[in-house]
Design a protein around this nucleic acid. Sequence first.
DNA 1: CAGTGGTCTAGACCACATG
DNA 2: ATGTGGTCTAGACCACTGG
Lengths: 254, 254
Amino acid sequence: MTTGPRHRTRQQHDEIAHYLRTAIREGSFQPGDELPSEAELTRKFTSSRGPVRQAMSALRGEGLISSGRGRRTVVLDNVLTQSFDDVISFSQWCHASDIVPGQVTQRVAREPAEKSLAASLRIEEGDPIVSVFRLRLMDEAPAMVERLNYPFEFGRHVLAFDTDSGSIYQELIDQGVDINRASRTIDAVGANDDDARLLEVPVGTPLLRVRRRAFTTAGDVIESSDDRYLPWKASFTMNSTRGNPSSMSLISGD
Amino acid sequence: MTTGPRHRTRQQHDEIAHYLRTAIREGSFQPGDELPSEAELTRKFTSSRGPVRQAMSALRGEGLISSGRGRRTVVLDNVLTQSFDDVISFSQWCHASDIVPGQVTQRVAREPAEKSLAASLRIEEGDPIVSVFRLRLMDEAPAMVERLNYPFEFGRHVLAFDTDSGSIYQELIDQGVDINRASRTIDAVGANDDDARLLEVPVGTPLLRVRRRAFTTAGDVIESSDDRYLPWKASFTMNSTRGNPSSMSLISGD
DNA sequence: CAGTGGTCTAGACCACATG
DNA sequence: ATGTGGTCTAGACCACTGG
């Protein structure tokens, strides 16, 4: 009964990390508390220091713990980082925030790539792409305009998909597209004619723009997109700890 | 006496990571290229696999490379992430980007906290705070307006500081203030009269707003601030990898 | 198949924090 | 002085990818 790894024989470092995460989330170790020392953990899991340190490194990356030379490792937080999926998908983020997502598709097209878009997708100018232009809703109200561009290799899955029905991201996952990494650039831009009409605001209204590129594990570009949010509907927050990476979440503005 | 001039002895994994980062930034390894195998790197740096893997792990966390069982490690991107310090401080970020930072102080005051500010700083309404209002420059050109608010306990270090001379963040560090964690909220806002005058743009111009709260290790609020950037001067980028947290950086828009 | 990166062991030394 | 976490070595086996 004790050994329960029925899922493909869980790795030791995974098992240790899972134990610590669970204990932290459930309050066995609370923020401010000291974690067991590495030596204790090696004994508890009959392991060497390698896997223990690998698990610690993972938790450190998640902002859960803080460690340092000579000091005991301390719990910082008990809130788990938003998952990658929640951050990449408007639909999933809405569901996580108890908001009903919606979409009104304006245009879906297969067309040749313009020069700048081709560069962004790392394909040749004129190669076929699939582009999608949608208005996204939060609880029925306009919240964001979304412009998505895919190389045909990935976009072909989108052409056969009812873009009014939900999450393209989920559809790509389901079709076996290996979405591994994403890079976002955030800035501000004034609403152009299309943005203004769809979002029902004056031209020039400040919008929060998120440009995103998504990659496969092999490094191929899956998507290059441009999302423009009404800033009172959504904003980004980030938490960073000294010496650790940041974690990000999208926050509802209502 | 020991041997000649010694900077702090650099750790092996640091040296390896630095070599790879530099080579990637300078284009010796371009996005899509394969990195040298771990075995090659151990030979090149006369090291064992541990440090090599530690360096790889760091670059993976920065979104620069992607690796996996049986596959060669591949370069994903060549944009370098900034550290926590660089991201919290305008001055340090400028230096890291080879931009000359500047500042024109508009106002430094000790005054009682208004209600909303008091709540944000977790002090009582009417308690003394120190507030700073500055225009920040990049290579002599207006780039950002900065409104900083400190509880008096921390702000007193700022009153004695020449706010036209550089980084308040660095000054606080030097004074021994324990800045450990920060939370940022990013959205868009139109320039108000003050913003417009200082940044030399029309009222209503879309600005990228970053509201920041900084905390000590003990959880006390050090700072509550509101920075508004010209969006063509600066933007935020974030890298997230499936199963890993995100890392963030501020990117020059020139 | 050979080569790669992912995992693991069992040692070791060091810098640092605390008592 | 002891114990901690950070770094490093020199091996090993495995899962997987690619030719």
